[in-house]
Amino acid sequence: MKKTINAMLLLMVMVMMSACSSLGVKPWERGSLSRDDMLMDADALDLAFDEHIYFSKEASSGGQGFAGGGCGCN
């Protein structure tokens, strides 16, 4: 059973890596992707505020970044 799961995981990783290698763009096709608002951490202050608010109101935190708190509110 364990071997089967390991084999499936290995297969998934291989498929993902192979899929990733077929995706993507050439360096000269990055115009849109280099826009500030296309960055994964665009609106960084908003994300930080939200993380702090939801950390203090809900039982979950983190995901995009580390889950740690730095706040005594929970």
Binding site: M16, C20, L23, G24, V25, E29, R30, G31, S32, L33, M38, M40
Partner: peptide
């Protein structure tokens, strides 16, 4: 993992 899909998405 962060992956660029095409020239408009990631």
């Amino acid at each position: 993992v962060t992956q660029i899909i095409d020239k408009n998405s990631l």
